[in-house]
Design a protein around this nucleic acid. Sequence first.
DNA 1: ATGAAAGCGCTAACAC
DNA 2: GTGTTAGCGCTTTCAT
Lengths: 341, 341
Amino acid sequence: MASGRRTIKDVARLAGVSLGSASRALSGANNVSEDTIARVQRAAASLRYRPNHAARSLRSRSTKTIGCMFSDLSNPLYARLFGTLEDRLAREGYVTLISNTSNQLDREIRTLKLFTERGLDALIIAPAHERNRELNEFIEHLPMPYLILDREMLVKADTILFDHAAGIAQVVDHLAELGHTRIGLVTANLKSRPGRRRIAAFKAAVRAHGLKLSDENLVLPESSMSSAYDDVIKMLSRKDRPTSIIVQGTGVLSSTMNAIARLGLRIPDDISLVSIGRADFILNHVPAISTLRVDYEKLSEEITARLFERLGNGNGRKPPLRRLFPYVFEVRGSSTAPPRE
Amino acid sequence: MASGRRTIKDVARLAGVSLGSASRALSGANNVSEDTIARVQRAAASLRYRPNHAARSLRSRSTKTIGCMFSDLSNPLYARLFGTLEDRLAREGYVTLISNTSNQLDREIRTLKLFTERGLDALIIAPAHERNRELNEFIEHLPMPYLILDREMLVKADTILFDHAAGIAQVVDHLAELGHTRIGLVTANLKSRPGRRRIAAFKAAVRAHGLKLSDENLVLPESSMSSAYDDVIKMLSRKDRPTSIIVQGTGVLSSTMNAIARLGLRIPDDISLVSIGRADFILNHVPAISTLRVDYEKLSEEITARLFERLGNGNGRKPPLRRLFPYVFEVRGSSTAPPRE
DNA sequence: ATGAAAGCGCTAACAC
DNA sequence: GTGTTAGCGCTTTCAT
């Protein structure tokens, strides 16, 4: 079967043209005759010819491949972003290579080495270890353009940061306006930026409204896949329990909903709920869940725009870009309501 | 930066050896002196040398890459399988390239073309269109070994099929033994094998127990992401509603749980529930949900074993393999109980 | 154990 | 518009 693989040489011979003409005909260059194109294409089709990507990228110095490094693809939030991004890049003729690192440092470094060896054209990365020296140094020496997603690395580079502060503030504003004075937060206590920022932003927003900030209204499981069940049960069983909660839309959310159901509480009658991130598994929830989410279409657009800017010739050492990307607060109306009292 | 990329030539020059020796030293051949190896490695490190994968695979005719084609990676079941598979293959030095096709025929064909162009070493595929002629023909002419996952294609090839019949039968047996006489099924009405087989197996198993098979106990939403909420509400509001249900562990499951909670039913007191597939979002559910699942570790093992068998020299036209892969019924005890009456 | 040289399949530069 | 040729970076002969 390896020997059965046809090369462009075979195509050229069958079409009765030179190797160069065959290449031009196949790649849609402008200086080829209609006739040549037709004959070459017919020859290629009849031979089931498929260009050899290794040879092509060795010569052209482009792999037409973009690498993505996330912590975990089964995180429903990332899975959705990746899907959108893949579609967007495919339209541009790029393949997306993704890698899960499970937040492990050695896997992050190994992944970047791999991406380098494979000569990927550009990268989109969200490393877990923002202050690790070795990782930062490696990233700094990356030979291709790259974009950092919602991480504050030591190295100065193109970065898109989610505006957690403004996003969370919007939600807290909304709940406070409805009359809620006791607001809870349920989110993984991550060391990386999203975790840090979310918690800090929540505290700041609650204080800004002159509400008292009780640690008892904070449920911070270790990871996004941890169960928040027991702690949420405890939090919502208190006499002065929060009347509204903001919940990270991962495994944390499903265990929270589980706890709410178990306590016989109704959304929004007994408790208002807002999800951070629009997880697939609550997409059809009844009632619809208000969500603080990122517009993945727009984000993909933004990411590709930045990447292609660097990929083009306009890469002449423009200063690193730092962009704050907004959240969208999608009030579905039915998951939040004024507190009863 | 492109010009900054070091080649093996640079390494050889700095180490003071020939290009060939440098290659041998780096690839750990046996006919190199310790001294050479040391000097070459030092040179490589100081130059931050990274081998060029395109050149390597052009020459060696191996990309060390395995392609996976699934319908949808945000399907929690597939996401988990992919993660396991990726880890397993990485340990063998292979990179995994995945592609979502969203069950679209043109994307499936485009993906296979892409995989061919990139010269992937082997493929794992689960096409949606099992009887499409063009697709089958394309697959038949694939130049690399491939393995078909739970699909009955026209083309005869290595195939691993999930044993839906035995799996579903096990669950129905369990429920029948507990005394359930009215058992429901909630699963996407897919055209592809998993959908077809699940529904057929359910009907057969119910009949085998002499139970009456009521269409009213079948909820078959269009896709795995569809909401089953309204239909489950309807099904469980009937006087003679099922006392136990088997539910596909995707978006279908979350909307079903949503409906159960809304009706104020308790698991397992009011209704027994078994999930098909162990979705992340119910991993920590209270009570634990009994699950009919595939052992992804074992499956990954099986898949890699098959693939490497074909990849090795033992590929001499052994007849296509057809393997029935078992489900594991994990009774968590607490989500199923005898019906009350 | 080492160096020299061929060549993987392709694109791009150069002649005409 | 077309043919010829060089060479991308590497592995793998073949001499020595």
